[in-house]
Computed example of a mutant assay.
Amino acid sequence: MLLNRMSLRSTATVGAATLVAGATFAVSAFADDSVDPNVAANAAVPETEESAPEEVVETSEEEFFAASQEIGEDELTTLREQARLERDAALGNRTQTSEAAGSDIEEEKEEEEEELPTYTGDPRGLALEMVLAQGWSAGEFHDCLEPLWEKESNWNHTAQNPSSGAYGIPQSLPGDKMATHGSDWQTNPATQIAWGIDYIKGRYGTPCGAWAHSQSVGWY
């Protein structure tokens, strides 16, 4: 800040020297033209005797710092716009990251749903395989299980008794009992057959035991 003061004072000094030099030059010029020296001197010197030298305004250190730190309105607007763009960019990246994570979760759920068992073939053939897997003979199926479920539902996995509410191939009552073998018990014949065979095994021992009971009392 000392340099600033010195610069202003130096400027004032140089200005004064220049004024004197100019006056001297004017006097010399008039002298060369055979002009009266007094006239030349009057022309070089200002007529107003009361005019004071130009006041030099010194700038304090505080005013200098304040002036250097002031930010114009245009520059302030530009800085605000840059900050807004950076904020929006950060939020956009976060949103994209969140959306990407959400899509991964949805894909995992879809894969889990695809893992649920589905069966589109002949339910009788599947039931025969399950009967044999239990160690029962093929006769248990052909002579007993096949006619039992033919009577109950005609092997229709969407059959529902309008009066009792029994549902599916084995006519489970209520139908949601079959949920123990799969959440797709309403639409998947394989889930219904697996539940029906476990029910027969636990209650009657074999399909023929269930068929005999049905023939005797009309239900199993």
Rank of each mutant, 00 (worst) to 15 (best):
Q192V: 09
T158W: 03
E99C: 00
A212S: 13
A133Q: 14
G202T: 14
E107Q: 12
T95F: 12
V217N: 09
S7G: 12
P147R: 05
P174D: 12
W211M: 14
M130Y: 11
E112Q: 15
T158P: 00
A83H: 14
L148V: 03
I105M: 10
E81P: 00
E55T: 04
M130I: 06
A21C: 08
D104P: 01
T95M: 12
T191H: 03
Q134N: 06
V217A: 08
A26E: 04
Y119T: 00
A210K: 02
W219S: 10
N154H: 07
E81L: 14
P170D: 01
L116G: 08
R80A: 15
A67V: 12
P147E: 04
R9G: 04
G135H: 07
T18K: 06
L132C: 06
G92R: 07
Q134C: 11
A138K: 15
T206K: 02
L3Q: 14
A212P: 02
E113R: 13
T191K: 03
W185N: 02
Q186A: 07
A29E: 09
T48H: 05
T191F: 03
L76V: 15
A100Y: 11
V45A: 07
Q96Y: 13
K109N: 15
F25H: 10
E75P: 01
A194R: 05
L19D: 01
G218D: 08
A17Q: 09
G121I: 03
C144F: 05
A159F: 07
N38R: 11
M130E: 11
E150N: 10
S103F: 06
E47T: 05
A67C: 13
S10P: 01
G125Y: 11
D32R: 08
M6Y: 02
G196W: 05
